[in-house]
Design a protein around this nucleic acid. Structure first.
Lengths: 113, 113
DNA sequence: CTCATACTTAGCCATATTCCTAAGTAATGC
DNA sequence: GCATTACTTAGGAATATGGCTAAGTATGAG
């Protein structure tokens, strides 16, 4: 498995964890270093880092290392893939009423015995 | 683990799988039975059913069994939790500029030697 | 140079996820 | 009633995930 994971898979999966959503909410307020971010999470640093790594792989955050400090920030247009997918979903949903009309038309046609 | 998973965890995790997103897109066009949904997926039925189960647990779809046929439909307000979280995130993001102003103000204050 | 800080890497363990096959149940059709 | 259809349940295998500790690297401070 794990052959190819789309950005969408990575985004949604990354968002599926409360620790990672909290990190994102913190980063929405502005950039922060690893230790700043980790401070409020009762978790060993390597475990915490793996969450940051997932967020970065999903394209939700970016990071930059200066000296020994790595600073994370919310990625520009972080949620674009998610927003796009949801919009598409809504678009289909709204087209549904048309299909209902069509279905009713089919029923009527069947009735013309 | 798996002590307590919020609706948001379940929603996002459910959306993190391409098979499940395809199911949702199909259901956006209207309700369908298990076999109708499964037809286009090259997967054993029990495996496929487990995806449907996850979608239902996440509150994204509903199902109803009539006779031997179970029909699935997109849940009303299926994406409300997701939309809400994203809105909240945007709200914080937009507040960020104010915080930047505040930060600049702090810098100015420090400079008043 | 030495020590502390701030990550980073390596590797292990437990549980969860995602697939499978085989067999079971319950409704429908003949 | 008996076969078929449409799920459903049970259980197993492979991989992924999320946590840990221990040890390593690299930068900044003194």
């Amino acid at each position: 498995m794990a052959k190819y994971e789309s950005k969408l898979d990575l985004c949604f999966s990354a968002l599926g964890d409360p620790t990672r959503r909290v990190i994102l909410q913190r980063l929405a307020r502005g950039p922060a270093s690893v230790s700043e971010l980790a401070a409020s999470h009762d978790m060993a640093l390597p475990s915490f880092m793996s969450h940051l790594k997932k967020l970065e792989e999903a394209g939700l955050v970016t990071s930059d290392k200066q000296g020994r400090t790595r600073t994370f920030a919310l990625a520009p247009d972080a949620f674009a893939p998610v927003d796009d997918w949801l919009s598409e979903q809504r678009r289909i949903w709204e087209g549904r009423l048309d299909q209902l009309d069509e279905y009713v038309a089919t029923l009527m046609k069947d009735r013309k015995t």
